[in-house]
């Protein structure tokens, strides 16, 4: 989530994408499947903090899941290394629609400091269609939570727009 972009603009953009895809809306909660595509572990550290601290992800109806088939969001951290690109693609392919891809951290945004290495394909967008980027190196737990809540906000906004298939 870039700071220069307004929160409302991001929400509207995501909502429009969801509505345009003509897909069933997400439920009231979000399930996340995480894939480390080549991270130093900093984003995972903050993600773990976001799942365990007092004001944690669960309080907002967001949980981490192991099974990609029950996930709404594929959360990618780290650069897209050649060794994990296929794993990330297969994980997304296993997810049911509607689904979002959220890139967390500067490495996932564009490859970060490792851009240009022959072992790195770039950011998450180099291998998957990314819906939302939560920037930072690494982003704080509060920033991760606020970024993920944007997806829920978008879901509500899409509901207000009148998505053609489903309702919350």
């Amino acid at each position: 989530m870039t700071q220069s972009t307004k929160h409302s603009d991001i929400v509207q953009g995501l909502a429009a994408r969801l509505a345009a895809a003509g897909e069933t809306l997400l439920g009231r909660s979000l399930a996340i499947r995480h894939v480390d595509a080549g991270s130093c572990g900093g984003c995972e550290m903050e993600l773990l903090s976001a799942t365990l601290m007092w004001d944690h992800l669960g309080c907002h109806g967001i949980c981490m899941v192991e099974d990609p088939r029950s996930a709404d969001i594929l959360l990618i951290t780290g650069v897209s290394s050649t060794g994990l690109a296929e794993a990330a693609r297969q994980c997304l392919a296993a997810m049911a629609r509607p689904r979002f891809v959220v890139a967390v951290g500067d490495c996932a945004a564009d490859g970060g400091i490792f851009k240009g290495s022959p072992s790195v394909l770039g950011g998450a967008a180099a291998i998957l269609p990314v819906d939302l980027v939560i920037s930072g190196c690494p982003p704080s737990p509060a920033r991760i939570i606020s970024g993920l809540l944007t997806v829920l906000d978008a879901n509500r906004a899409a509901s207000a727009l009148g998505s053609p298939v489903g309702r919350l």
Binding site: H34, V35, D36, G38, E44, M64, L84, A88
Partner: peptide, 8 residues
């Protein structure tokens, strides 16, 4: 890819 927060 495994566990809740994947260890690669």
């Amino acid at each position: 890819v495994g566990g809740l927060i994947a260890a690669p």
